[in-house]
């Protein structure tokens, strides 16, 4: 039994496909990640799965209910932590939780018990009666996690849960998310554009780019696709001729050019570096630097999309700026 079933889900905005026929299933109590750059369609997907946005086409089942025909049942069984903060900053932490619990029809005894539990879980018991306006970014995030979880949802959606938080706070939030998943027996879907977050947290990762899922598996298996280690050679001149000389070598599993870099994957890369350098020397190609590393999700992303996630983000930022400029001109 899958907790979430997504079949050919598509969303168009004015003819542009933000989400393009994606399909995936999420198992019970799985921690499932959707990884992709800004503008890839992650938030749009979450908004559809949480009934806030109507899909253009496709079928989605959450906790056994169709999101198009059974919105209320879906809403009853999900908790959501949105990308942007969604707390009432004029209320105290506890009041925010009470508001939520009452909206989900929890009776007084259960409400008080659960509020106490979730506050302890995210270690905010002492700050419960402080007005949220005075919370730090990390505390707000924790409160939202607690709130999304208070009514014991079957599925918890986390849209970029650590966006804009410092490294230490992110680590903490990760631990809370893991704890929720393990101890709370809740299925979690999270979106992120942080590779390390997806790698550390998620049982399975779907890589999404331009509204399409380009790869989906456990992060280990995704890395295995690349085969062994990655040796990255920085070359100023004539990458192509080096590629020509290398393409017949059996021990090179794959070869990809990216700007001034030639990325090779192979077993036991550290043993092969001298050979690579001597080949380059023989044909007169200058290698500026050599880098060897175990594959990360970053490499997987590069492998499947031909771009690094940071480049994608950069493009998106440029695009946003362009839109803003146009708006101002109007």
């Amino acid at each position: 039994m899958f907790t979430i079933k997504v079949e050919n889900l598509t969303k168009e905005f004015n003819g542009v496909r933000a989400v393009n026929s994606i399909s995936f299933n999420v198992n019970d109590v799985e921690l499932f990640g959707i990884l992709g750059p800004n503008g890839a369609g992650k938030t749009t997907t979450i908004n559809m799965l949480t009934t806030l946005l109507k899909p253009t086409s496709g079928y989605v089942e959450v906790a056994g209910y169709d999101i198009s025909n059974n919105k209320d049942e879906v809403r009853r069984h999900i908790g959501v932590v949105f990308q942007e903060p969604s707390l009432d900053i004029n209320l105290t932490g506890k009041e925010n939780l009470e508001f939520h619990a009452m909206m989900y029809k929890m009776d007084k005894d259960e409400r008080e018990k659960r509020i106490k539990e979730v506050l302890e879980l995210v270690e905010l018991t002492e700050k419960a009666d402080v007005i949220v306006e005075n919370y730090s970014g990390g505390m707000k995030r924790r409160l939202e996690l607690a709130r999304g979880f208070i009514h014991k949802p079957k599925v918890l959606f986390l849209d970029e849960p650590t966006l804009g938080l410092d490294t230490q706070t992110r680590r903490h939030i990760w631990d809370y998310i893991k704890k929720l998943n393990r101890e709370g027996n809740v299925t979690i879907i999270l979106t992120t554009h942080y590779m390390d977050e997806a790698d550390y947290l998620c049982d399975r990762v779907a890589i999404i780019d331009n509204g399409k899922i380009v790869a989906m598996d456990t992060s280990d298996k995704l890395k295995d696709v690349l085969g062994g280690d990655i040796v990255s050679l920085e070359i100023k001149n004539d990458i192509d001729s080096l590629m020509n000389h290398l393409k017949d070598l059996k021990w090179i599993e794959s070869m990809k050019k990216h700007n001034n870099n030639l990325n090779l994957t192979m077993e036991r890369g550290e043993k092969r570096i001298p050979e690579l350098v001597s080949i380059a020397q023989r044909i007169g190609v200058d290698i500026d630097s050599v880098n060897l590393h175990k594959p990360s999700l970053e490499d997987v992303f590069l492998y499947f999309t031909g771009k690094t996630i940071r480049e994608q983000d950069g493009n998106q930022r440029e695009r946003n700026r362009e839109i803003m400029r146009r708006r101002v001109k109007k």
Partner: peptide, 8 residues
């Protein structure tokens, strides 16, 4: 508003 709108 989103918090209100995802409530059942």
């Amino acid at each position: 508003l989103k918090e209100i709108m995802v409530a059942p």
